[in-house]
Amino acid sequence: MPEEPPEAFVPDDYAAFLAARLHPLKAIAVRYAKLLMGTGQLYPINTAKLEKYRKIGELLTMCDDVLLAGTGVAVIDILRQMDAVNTAIAVGERVDPDYIAEMIYLDIQLMSDGHTSIKYEPLEFIQITKRYRRHYESIRHLI
């Protein structure tokens, strides 16, 4: 019998704080989708520079709040779509730019803005994030 998926461990208030840090990714995703749709062509994008957002998305999937967890899934999918474009370009595969743009727009609509009054000091935020990332990495194989 397969192992049970791990329980949520990221507190919702911290998840909301993380979600509020996704505004730059949202802006990048909107511009990228507009470019694809406006030109009808695929363009490579350096997703390595966006990796911090993927890590935020992974942590968001581990909270109880459905909107925030859904935001995490949307973030991961936006980056997966961008990775798929990069792969398609690299191997010469034909992919419909409008489809990719529509998927990205759909994911953007699913993203929560993460409104919260909770504030973290920078060092505290880094320490908490490292602790949650270590735990996430230790259970990744169960997800």
Rank of each mutant, 00 (worst) to 15 (best):
E58Y: 12
Y14T: 01
G57P: 08
A48G: 11
D107H: 13
M111C: 09
T47L: 02
P5L: 12
C63T: 08
T61K: 14
I56P: 04
F17R: 05
N46R: 15
E102L: 03
Q81P: 00
V10K: 09
L67R: 06
D77F: 03
L60M: 00
T61S: 08
V75M: 13
V95F: 12
A20I: 01
L79E: 12
E3N: 12
V75Q: 14
L67M: 13
P44Q: 13
D96P: 10
T47F: 00
E51K: 11
T61Y: 04
A20Q: 07
D113N: 04
V85F: 05
D83G: 15
F9V: 01
V85P: 06
E7S: 14
M82Y: 04
D96S: 13
G57K: 07
E58M: 12
L35W: 03
L68H: 04
N46E: 11
Y53N: 10
K52Q: 02
C63W: 11
G57E: 05
L110S: 06
Y43P: 09
V66H: 11
L25I: 00
L68G: 06
A33Y: 15
G57I: 01
E7F: 12
L42M: 02
L50N: 03
T47M: 01
I89C: 05
L50Y: 04
T47Q: 00
I76K: 14
I78K: 14
E93C: 09
A101C: 07
Q41N: 13
H23E: 09
Y105N: 13
E4Q: 14
I89L: 12
E93Q: 15
L79S: 10
P11L: 02
